[in-house]
Write a protein that binds this DNA or RNA. Sequence first.
DNA 1: AGCAAGCCTTGATTCAGATCAATCCTCCCC
DNA 2: GGGGAGGATTGATCTGAATCAAGGCTTGCT
Lengths: 248, 248
Amino acid sequence: MLKEDTYDIARDCGECPIRHRAVCARCEVDELEQLDQIKYYRNFEAGQTVTWAGDKMDFVGSVVSGIATLTQTMEDGRTQMVGLLLPSDFVGRPGRRTAAYDVVATTDLVMCCFRKQPFEDMMNRTPHIAQRLLEMTLDELDAAREWMLVLGRKTAREKIASLLSIIGRRDAALHMAGREGPMVFDLPLTREAMADYLGLTLETVSRQISALKKDGVIVLEGKRHVTIPDFNRLLDEAGDDSDGGLLA
Amino acid sequence: MLKEDTYDIARDCGECPIRHRAVCARCEVDELEQLDQIKYYRNFEAGQTVTWAGDKMDFVGSVVSGIATLTQTMEDGRTQMVGLLLPSDFVGRPGRRTAAYDVVATTDLVMCCFRKQPFEDMMNRTPHIAQRLLEMTLDELDAAREWMLVLGRKTAREKIASLLSIIGRRDAALHMAGREGPMVFDLPLTREAMADYLGLTLETVSRQISALKKDGVIVLEGKRHVTIPDFNRLLDEAGDDSDGGLLA
DNA sequence: AGCAAGCCTTGATTCAGATCAATCCTCCCC
DNA sequence: GGGGAGGATTGATCTGAATCAAGGCTTGCT
């Protein structure tokens, strides 16, 4: 379904869909050219693992298209998702030898990669890259902290509403869809993945989605296609300030 | 009790207790001198608020001594702590006008502050600062993600054990105490603050601490003074790999 | 067509942690 | 020494989500 995303990749940075949102966003033309020298694309199929926690990680990179998840697992198998990687998000940590988390492709995935050493060298020479990476990391930290509130203090229903609002918002930002009008998108996650994100069981996720549907907060077509008739209503259910979106 | 920390502050960066761990860690002598020009110290008493979420924030800074908490609050009063600020930790986000969270001094607190604008200017001129800040932010992001696992998937007992192990570890790192031998420290948080950190109620915190004490995992003297006879036992109770500490 | 594998839903029951409530301890102030 | 406030403990009860269990719906394979 999402297969076409993996075709005709813009090999040329100038036409890259994430050109102005990824680590390279601030780069000048000549800097881009240097990055162009050391970049390479990798494709992953839905379900494939990009990185195993603890394994040596010799590259870093950006998600170009598709979606991946970042998860942590305890010895007894309990897992918690700690990040959702959408196009333009950065994978890997400069200055670290091994991967800290499992990264798994949820849909077919295209990544723009750099071998770690050349990238780090380039980062040291190019403040624009380091600056952008700092900015992105700070944003991720904010997102992680927001998520801590969700995990620690929200009810199951609020958790689901929060997740839907986040996915909806990020999706809208990506498509630059005209504001107003009902929000429509496909859930990129299975019920189980949502449960892992929210610290719930998949049964509870299913029940709460059914409940939100029954109450008219969301409209479901099939199991994945979601329409949000009233986004503020959803934010309300999430326990968020209805105007929280303006801060970003 | 911790009052003496606020006396004789090293006005000279060379003698600063957090010199080699804070944002300034990588700075050369001449860079330090520039920072010295624009820095100023601020003292806060235990319980005082450093920053209100949403308020304008015209400074950034490092915790020199004492402890502060970073918390998020929902309209109905539910609160979640999203960060614990120990000496050398950085407060504030360059490039943002308003504070995103409440920052509250838990003990008497000394901060080394910079007005935001001069600091940002300096950051743009001084890669050593930006580099160090990136590194610290990445560490914080890792910590936040670890905490997401705690919040989302651990039981109350595991949560308490996790918190104790984190506090113990950070305390040991600070005092550079000789490895081996039982770990001893004072809890810097009330039961309520621990509950806010862990997404629990204070009653549950109290019960689980009592249980860990009864089971000999910890020894309590008074309500705050903790001895950990066997740190690996504690890690075990936390559900962590007993050798997780080596990664850092 | 027939069957198996994934994914999802729904129901019944259980249980960990929340909530409600009482009491205790320690420190401080008068 | 008495009273009060803030923090902590402990007990009784309730409840939201987990767990256990049974089907249902798609999709793809043989």
